[in-house]
Computed example of a mutant assay.
Amino acid sequence: MADELAWETLTTDIAYSCPGFDIVHEDVELPDGTETDFDFLREGDSVVVLPLTPDGDVVVIEEWRQAVKRVNRALPAGSMEADDAAPRDAVDRELREETGYEAERVRHLYTAEPANGYADSVFHYFLAEGCEPTAEQELDFDESIRVETAAFDELLESVRSGDLRDGRSAVGLMYYALFER
């Protein structure tokens, strides 16, 4: 049975498409019968990895982010690709490609919809333990990434102070600190 709050989608079109996301335009009918339109960002599923070295440091990346015109410190993350059957499949690939590290153990932490009022984005958070630098980075043509390690408590403090502003990373660090540590 449909929820009384549900909207009915009448038509769906792609208003704009580019590598990484689409802008979707829908004509919808609201529960009271009003017809209107709704646009949203279709990005799909991504993974965010909290990679811990054997001695407990976190593998972090520094990456140029054109939208905010600065280098951003963050956890490795990336979109699921067509050949990823499940979010877990994307974890090893993203960690290796962005950092050159590989994990001994990986487990799911949390799944979030960070902006479901205007986007269908889903972030799957994973803990990767026993991470060692065993491979070379395999960056996409438009990625500029520097890799480093940092103490977990230092990163957590950088969230508190506002120095670490990447929302995906902040959620992952805080979730781990609150529920897993």
Rank of each mutant, 00 (worst) to 15 (best):
S121M: 06
L95S: 01
N116A: 13
D142M: 13
S79N: 10
S144T: 12
E143D: 14
S79L: 12
P87D: 06
T134C: 11
L95G: 02
F126V: 03
L109H: 03
L127M: 09
A119N: 08
A112P: 00
A112F: 07
A85E: 14
A128G: 05
A74G: 12
Y125K: 00
A128R: 00
Q66R: 09
A128Y: 00
A103N: 01
P114S: 06
V71C: 05
E97V: 02
T111F: 08
L139D: 09
V106K: 05
Q66I: 05
A115F: 15
N72W: 09
P133V: 04
P76I: 01
F126W: 07
V60T: 11
E81W: 09
A77D: 03
R70N: 10
K69E: 14
R88M: 11
D89F: 06
E62T: 10
D83F: 12
R70H: 13
E81A: 13
L139A: 11
D140E: 15
G78L: 07
F126I: 01
L139V: 13
M80Y: 01
E129G: 05
A77I: 01
R88S: 09
S121R: 04
G130H: 01
P133S: 12
Y110N: 04
A90Q: 03
Q137P: 06
A135M: 11
F141R: 11
V60A: 11
C131T: 06
S121W: 00
T111H: 04
N116E: 13
A74Y: 04
E63M: 07
G78C: 09
D92Q: 09
K69I: 09
G130R: 01
E63Y: 04
A74C: 13
L139W: 14
T99Q: 02
D120P: 00
A90S: 11
G130D: 02
A103Q: 00
V68L: 13
H124N: 13
R96G: 02
T134F: 10
E62I: 06
A86W: 07
D83C: 07
G117N: 10
R93V: 02
G78P: 04
F126Y: 15
T111N: 04
S144H: 15
E143Y: 10
L75R: 00
S121D: 05
R88D: 08
P133H: 11
V71P: 01
W64T: 04
Y101T: 03
E97L: 04
E98D: 12
E63Q: 10
D84L: 08
A74D: 06
S121K: 00
A82K: 06
A119W: 02
H108E: 09
I61V: 15
E62P: 00
E102Y: 03
A103K: 00
E136F: 14
D140H: 15
A112V: 13
E94G: 01
D120V: 02
V68D: 09
F123R: 01
H108P: 02
A135D: 15
D140C: 11
H124V: 06
E132S: 12
T134D: 13
E132M: 10
E113D: 08
V122L: 11
V91T: 03
A67V: 10
Y118I: 09
E129I: 05
L75C: 06
L109R: 00
R88Q: 12
D92K: 08
E136H: 12
Y118R: 08
F123L: 14
K69M: 15
E97H: 14
L139G: 07
P133Q: 14
P87K: 02
P76H: 04
Y110L: 09
Y118Q: 08
Q137L: 12
L95A: 03
